[in-house]
Simulated scan of single mutants.
Amino acid sequence: MTRILFAAAPARWAEYREPLPHALDAVGVAHRIVTLENDPDPATIDWIVYAPNSALQDFTPYTRLKGVLNLWAGVEDVEGNPTLRAPLARMVEDGLTRGMVEWVTGHVLRHHLGMDAHISNPDRIWTATPPPLARDRPVAMLGMGELGTACATALTTLGFPVTGWSRGPKTVPGVRSVTGPDGLADALGGAKIVVLLTPLTRSTANLIDAAALAAMRPGSVLLNPGRGGLVEDDALLAALSDGHLAHATLDTFRTEPLPDDHPFWSHPKITVTPHIASATRPDGAARVIAENIRRGEAGEPLLHLVDRSEALA
């Protein structure tokens, strides 16, 4: 009998109470699931299904732990935990991916077509100038993991030229791959819309600083559905206020919820969305978790393992 601890808020367990046992049954894993409220003996737990904001922060007592399966795509709040010795897997599931593709595609098209000027036009200005075609609006996708690759692919189908920047070379049909500092400068300087979907690690923290913003084309747009820590807030505000950047649409922030007095709320060139670009859907996530537990129990490699060598300290 495989013993699984669901370590997340009670409201989250209410969402998984039915789909997770069903998914485990479907892959043939005999199981017992407990929550933190059950006060389980840590030494009996094989797997932890985990939300990083859980009350569980010390993994030391979990002496037989085989793996931690994150409920979220982001792992920066757990991967640097020095008490975690077991393998860590991030969440990748179709609903999360499709949600991100729809948010990114929607906001790229919004800025590409200049929709804001038509949605809010109190002076009834008639400017009969059509936007350029997608082929004339290059996009940089910073981060070419599961989410970045899916978003880049969707944009290419609409005709946007896409350059993908990642730690290592990627082969994605229709996407030009660049790497390293020179590749980053190339991607930023060649794009009119920049999308941030790289993980937050030691090497990507504050990736979009004053120098990176200066390297972007005048009048370009920044979209950040990735992680708030990728962008230096003050540098972004300066680049927008001096007119170098046309707009920033932000879905993730260093502090969430975004404080009421944060200047992002009132800046005329910033759109704030409340971390809604993508969310894990319990049915799909339960299937991913169950498959990983099945793999682990069978001695097979886990899906979506995290490389913790770049974890934030």
Rank of each mutant, 00 (worst) to 15 (best):
R202M: 14
R202S: 14
T204N: 05
A205R: 14
A205S: 14
L207E: 02
I208Y: 06
D209W: 13
D209H: 13
A212N: 11
A212F: 10
L213I: 10
A214D: 09
M216H: 10
R217G: 01
P218Q: 10
P218D: 12
P218R: 14
G219L: 12
G219V: 08
G219S: 13
S220C: 11
S220L: 12
L222Q: 02
L223F: 03
N224T: 02
P225V: 07
G226M: 08
R227Q: 12
G228Y: 05
G229M: 09
L230Q: 03
L230T: 03
V231D: 02
V231R: 03
E232V: 09
E232H: 13
E232C: 05
E232W: 09
E232L: 04
D234Y: 14
A235I: 02
L236W: 05
L236P: 00
L236Y: 06
L237W: 09
L237V: 01
A238Q: 02
S241N: 02
S241Q: 01
D242C: 14
D242G: 12
H244A: 10
H244F: 04
H244V: 08
H244C: 09
H244L: 09
L245S: 11
L245I: 07
L245E: 07
H247E: 01
H247S: 04
H247I: 00
T249C: 10
L250Y: 06
L250V: 08
D251C: 01
D251Q: 07
T252M: 09
T252H: 08
F253Q: 11
T255I: 12
T255H: 15
T255A: 15
P257L: 15
P257H: 15
P257F: 14
L258V: 06
L258C: 10
L258W: 08
